[in-house]
Amino acid sequence: MAKMSFEDAATRYGAEPGGGAPTKVKITFVDSQGQARSVEGEVGSTVMETARRNDIPEIAAECGGACACATCHVYVDEKWAEKTGKASQMEEDMLDFAFDVKPNSRLCCQITVRPELDGLVLTTPAQQG
């Protein structure tokens, strides 16, 4: 069903209805091989959308952000754990379907980009689905 890429959604629904330049924050994804990729995330979008828009590997996001598939699993860098917060009950339930879940595991479709997350560092697991 409506499993659109963020680009599609942005074009279709007009994700940025003006009102000044959106605030951007820096997010770094470190892949399972240790390679880091830093991208800009727009405040208000999700970290998963940011990853997809920037072709970050190892983020599958099969369900398109419905917290229904556990294929946007990330490990939050220790220093950031407090700012990103804890997984909700629904997200914890869904994490049961992810592999190698650790105390710092999150589904990044459930992390909204906020100004205080500027500099956020996440690691992606080798296998999502």
Binding site: A2, K3, E62, C63, A66
Partner: peptide, 24 residues
Amino acid sequence: GGQCSELYPEKPIYDIPGLPVCTG
């Protein structure tokens, strides 16, 4: 139901023409 039943049974869908909101 496919993905509708498997992934989003309880999630609202807003873009079915003529149905302002319905779940999967």
